[in-house]
Design a binder for these strands. Structure first.
Length: 582
RNA sequence: GCACCCGUAGCUCAGCUGGAUAGAGCGUCAGUUUGCGGUACUGAAGGUCGUAGGUUCAAAUCCUGCCGGGUGUACCA
């Protein structure tokens, strides 16, 4: 995979980078590619990296790779490339050195670096230019509690959506969840038992703030009864069917219907309150009931065409020939399972948005499940399957590790995470209800780690104002703004840099590269890591360099402003507020 | 059993489009500092990158075996 690849352009004698629109890195790559082509008649896409600052601003190992092809001495090849590159870029590149086994290190001129600094906060590589993207994530089920995983996946999905949007996509954020299905039957069963029968008027006795907890308790009781009591199990299966019937007959009036619709709404209210609180709003919520019919019809149609097979009274897709496994799409009661509903959802999302790309973000326990669903869809709608990508992440665990069991109901809930963070924050700072810092802390802790493996959430570490944390970066930003408030607003053109300014300037210009990488790989943690490194470099600069009142004040203020703008922009992309004062 | 994921300092993690001495944070120890928000900065100690092979001029990074952990594997979502 080529991250920053562009084909080499037509030959021209000399390039003036600062007058060209392309991002700097790609310009250098193009020139490098051309030089290599002219010198050795080899076409390749050079990769530029950011080396240790002692070596230069950019580095490439092309000579080492070339040495293999050409059977030459890597250092000799590097020298030839370096010389040619220097010739073609005389005004923009200060130095091209050969070092070590054959690395080519590039050091920019200060004037080119200055131009890049000015562009860094606003230049967004358009990785998804013009694409219409539907991003689906969070996916909580009505009638059930929001757990830590929903929190995590909401934060991840929101950040990824922002990253794609910054990279040029129009992103529609949607949510999906089971308002029909066995868990609803289980919850309804226990709720009816609690109410003493189908008495919707008794729902009024439940105070608003206890609604979610009451439904959660019912789900736990229903699940236990389903497993332990055969009579209850049969009743729950009947209730499950009865819920589907509500939709078929458009029943909003019967007592049973009344209870169902009221409690479903309670769930949605509870979800929306949570999303509002953590700042991850959705454009649309797809209830399973809305896509179940479409999924069911589609699977039935494709059953007739041989995509699906009947087996023991159920309709299945046999994945074995694709290296997958067999899954049930319609069960032997004729009810569509999650699989069929997901088929319906993919189709409905396309009807609604005509997306170029559909992104689904879930925990990685869904990985092989989703592979089967997408393989099934590929058989009759290959264009939908190929436009869909499933991204997965790990589980959230609380440091110290609480044993989790959904049957006993002692799962880690979303609110537990929030409460633990608030408690740790109060301990650390003495502040209560510091929601902005607490949310920054949690989100940063969730996103600073690479997506994939499980995540161990440590509340104390996350709220700490020292170290690699959200509050540290929020504070770093507020501190930079404070400096700017003290100085006259005059903006200045940059010309040259002293050593510590230059370190900061070089790091600043890395921002667009980081955004490109985060977007291409769909990995928000690159942004977090970068922002932290940037803040560290800034603090080193700031330790020795006086800003306000110094002869170099104009240059330094411009750097401080650029730095603050990047912090704010980067934190915003991962969904974290960056207040000017704390 | 089969499939997928993971195994890097005491802890939590970067690094894995193969390349220059394997990096952070926390913790530990030792320092700096009458300054623009010191919630900072400097330094030290700490790693056979699970293990055994293979490919390569070059492997934490790619391939294979093994060990250890996790997840999934037909009528839940």
């Amino acid at each position: 995979m080529q991250l920053y690849g562009l084909p080499p352009g037509p030959c021209s004698s000399k390039k003036h980078y600062s007058s060209v629109q392309l991002p700097l890195m790609e310009q250098i790559q193009q020139t490098l590619a051309r030089v290599i082509h002219d010198l050795f008649d080899v076409d390749m896409q050079p990769v530029l990296t950011r080396p240790d600052p002692q070596f230069g601003d950019y580095a490439t190992n092309v000579a080492l790779q070339l040495a293999g092809h050409l059977k030459g001495n890597p250092r000799d090849i590097a020298s030839q490339v370096a010389e040619a590159l220097k010739e073609q870029t005389a005004e923009d590149i200060k130095d091209v050195d050969v070092a070590g086994p054959g690395f080519i290190n590039i050091t920019l001129s200060d004037s080119l670096l200055a131009a890049q600094v000015h562009e860094a906060p606003t230049h967004k590589p358009q990785t998804y230019a013009g694409q219409k993207v539907v991003a689906e994530y969070s996916d909580p089920n009505p009638f059930k509690v929001l757990h830590a995983g929903h929190f995590y996946t909401s934060v991840v999905g929101y950040a990824l959506s922002n990253i794609m949007a910054a990279a040029g996509a129009t992103v529609h954020r949607v949510n999906f969840g089971g308002d029909v299905g066995l868990h609803v039957g289980k919850t309804m069963w226990a709720m009816l038992r609690d109410l003493g029968g189908e008495y919707p008027e008794k729902l009024a006795d439940i105070p608003e703030h206890e609604r979610a907890a009451w439904m959660t308790k019912a789900y736990i009781a229903g699940t236990a009864a389903y497993e332990e009591d055969e009579t209850a199990k049969a009743e729950i299966i009947t209730l499950n069917k009865q819920v589907y019937t509500l939709f078929e007959t458009n029943d909003h009036d019967s007592p049973f219907a009344h209870i169902y619709w009221t409690c479903r709404q309670w769930s949605y209210d509870y979800f929306n309150a949570f999303y509002e609180r953590i700042g991850t709003p959705f454009e649309k919520y797809y209830p399973e009931s809305e896509v179940a019919g479409l999924g069911l019809r589609t699977v039935r149609e494709q059953l007739a065409k041989g995509v699906f097979k009947e087996s023991d009274g159920a309709v299945v897709f046999e994945g074995e020939s694709y290296g997958l496994h067999t899954r049930v799409f319609i069960n032997s009661h004729g009810i569509p399972t999650y699989e069929a509903k997901d088929v319906g959802l993919i189709m409905r999302k396309h009807e609604d948005y005509h997306f170029d790309r559909s992104v689904i973000i879930t925990g990685n326990e869904q990985e092989q499940y989703m592979a089967v669903v997408l393989k099934a869809v590929e058989q009759f709608a290959p264009e939908l399957a190929s436009a869909t990508t499933h991204f997965t992440h790990g589980l959230v665990k609380l440091k110290g590790g609480v044993k989790m069991s959904s049957r006993k109901g002692n799962i880690l809930r979303a609110l537990d995470v929030l409460n633990a963070a608030h408690a740790a924050n109060k301990q650390a700072t003495g502040r209560e209800d510091d929601e902005q810092a607490v949310l920054g802390a949690i989100k940063y802790a969730f996103l600073k780690q690479r997506l994939g493996p499980d995540l161990i959430y440590d509340p104390e570490e996350s709220v700490s104002l020292e170290g690699n944390s959200g509050p540290y970066l929020q504070y770093a930003h507020a501190r930079a703004r404070s400096i700017l408030r003290k100085a006259p607003a005059a903006a200045s053109e940059l010309h040259d840099f002293d050593a510590s300014e230059r370190m900061l300037a070089v790091k600043v210009t890395e921002y667009p590269d980081v955004l490109a990488r985060a977007a291409t790989e769909m990995m928000p943690h690159y942004i977090c890591t970068y922002l932290y490194e940037l803040a560290q470099i800034f603090n080193r600069f700031y330790e020795n360099a006086k800003v306000v009142g110094d002869p170099r004040e104009a240059t330094r203020l411009t750097l401080v402003r650029t730095y603050a703008d990047i912090l704010k922009d980067g934190l915003g992309l991962v969904g974290i507020a960056a207040p000017d004062k704390m």
